[in-house]
Structures are given as C-alpha cells and as structure tokens.
Design a protein around this nucleic acid. Structure first.
Length: 285
DNA sequence: CGTCCAGGTCTAC
DNA sequence: GGTAGACCTGGACGC
C-alpha cells in the first residue's frame, strides 16, 4: 500500500505546474507583456499565440490561469521560470518608473523580457537580426531549428558540426554563416561561456566587452543580448528603435538626446527605453 | 532591369 | 577615438 505522502506527492506532480506571477520583491508580473516583450521572443521554436496568450515550445505548454503561469509538463517549471525571468527583482526599476508620467504604467507588471532557455540561443537569434529584414531573420532561425535542430533549437555542438553548405544553401545566412559556426564552435568547446553572462557579479561593462568580443556581435547586438540577460544600462539603438522612438515621441531625436532622456533610469535606462517604444504592444482588456 | 536597404559588423585606414 | 567600403540575402522601389 502506497503511503499517503507519496501518493499526495504523485497527485501534486501530475497536476500542471503553477508559478505565481509575482517577482521576488512581490511585484506583479504581466504574463501577456512577457510573451509580447520583444520580437525575438516570437522566433522558432517558440510559438506564441496572442489570441489566447499561450507559449508552446519543444513539448512545453505555458498559459495563464488565476494569477499564475501554468506549465505542462510540470518538469518544465524551472526552464519556464527562467524564460519568464521571474527571479529578477524589478521593484527598484518600478520605484523610479513610478515617478515618470510616461512610464508609470510599467509598474503594473511590465519589464520582463522573454528569455531563451540558453544564452547561446539568444545570441544566435540576435546575430540573425543584424543587417537584414525581419522576414530574413525568421527564415534563418527557422532554418537552424528545422534543418540542424530537428525541430528544437540546435545545440552548439550540432551547429558547429553542420556543414558550411547548410548555412549557405538552407539557412541562407549569407556572411553570418561563418559567425554562427564560429560562435557555436567556441560554445561547444567551452572557449566561450555564454551562461557566465548571467553572473550578477559581473559589471555591465564587463558583460558588454565579452559580447563585443564575439563574432558578429557589435554595439546593437550587444545591447540587445544584454537586455535579455538583465543588463539594461545600454539603449538598443538601431534602424527599428530610432524611427519607433520618433513615432511614439512625436518627433525625431538624436541618439544623444534619447540617451539623455532615459539617463534618470541609470542601470535600467535600456529597459525604460524599450518599454517606452513598445507600450502599445499589449492592449488593455 | 538596377539600386537601395532592412532591428549591423568588420577591417582598414 | 572616428569614418569608408565591403558584405549575403531578398523584398521594395524607381526607371
């Protein structure tokens, strides 16, 4: 006869995992705003359905129910916690944002950028956004997932082992192919430790320097990856954010002016800038 | 058809 | 420190 505690545990484990949508400081977490936090979040193998607000990926299903994220299977709870960035305390950011009439709304739970399960994946995807239209980014990442990862996001080992022809003829990554293979080889051999970029002991300048040392990562890509690993001191200034700022702001501004406007946010300047740009992305109910 | 450029980066001055 | 050109790809545009 099975003991009661064991049975109770089994019953509990068979229920979908539930993750309360609260940050470490008790801050609210807007689940929809995490799913719709940035464009890279929508790339394969992620599948985000904004009509019902669900996230599916590699057999994992995430939805929102009664103030919690529900996760199936339950074993995927740790990776989902990471993807939703639920362990970062944003209360310090909210304290500053509350004083800014343009951004006070974020304190309702905005600011968590959807992360990939590995930093490697976010770096690869970011490289695939450089110097090309969004449609090309979708094609390249789709090619990596389908033809190298077999439907999942490819491991560094698989990407390093893939032939150059695959990058040229299937992924159609163009000159980025060499960057991607080189990055993957470094990650596979352990020469580059991308997970270390999550180390809170590192300063933003150190994280930035390590990213800029990677093949194919320049100022834009470094700032983008940094936002995804919780480093917000740099603003993402590129061909999308500049005109988007002009649209939201009502008139154009130089990079210097933009940087000044968000200077009050200190280490959260990049996050404040991004949220300002994307404030219309998730309509209120 | 050619030119431009999109969520830039690299190298060479 | 700063700038000029080259760079894969493939839509969007002008001619």
């Amino acid at each position: 006869m099975e003991s009661f505690p064991t049975l109770a545990r089994r019953v509990e484990e068979n229920r979908p995992g539930r993750i309360p949508l609260r940050g470490p400081g008790g801050e609210p977490v807007d689940f929809r705003r995490v799913l719709a936090s940035h464009g890279v979040a929508t790339l394969p193998p992620n599948r985000i359905d904004e009509s019902v607000w669900t996230l599916d990926r590699e057999g994992v299903h995430v939805a929102e129910r009664r103030g919690a994220a529900t996760v199936e299977p339950v074993g995927a709870v740790p990776v989902v916690r990471r993807m939703l960035n639920l362990d970062e305390d944003l209360s310090g950011f909210y304290a500053v944002a509350a004083q800014d009439p343009e951004l006070a709304w974020v304190t309702a739970g905005a600011g968590r950028m959807l992360r990939s399960p590995t930093v490697f994946e976010d770096v690869v995807k970011t490289i695939c956004t450089t110097n090309c239209a969004w449609s090309a980014t979708v094609r390249m990442v789709g090619g990596l997932v389908e033809h190298i990862g077999g439907g999942a996001f490819p491991t560094p080992e698989a990407m390093a082992a893939a032939d150059e022809d695959v990058y040229r003829e299937v992924v159609r990554a163009g000159y980025r192919g060499a960057y991607l293979r080189s990055l993957a080889a470094g990650a596979a051999e352990g020469a580059v430790d991308l997970e270390a970029l999550l180390d809170p002991e590192l300063g933003d300048d150190e994280v930035s320097a390590r990213l800029l040392a990677l093949p194919g990562i320049g100022p834009y890509a470094a700032a983008h990856v940094m936002m995804l690993v919780g480093r917000y001191s740099l603003l993402i200034l590129d061909s999308w954010t500049r005109p988007q700022y002009a649209r939201v702001n009502g008139r154009k501004a130089s990079d210097r002016t933009i940087v000044r406007r968000f200077r009050r946010y200190g280490p959260y300047a990049g996050l404040a800038f991004w949220l300002y740009l994307t404030r219309e992305w998730v309509p209120e109910d």
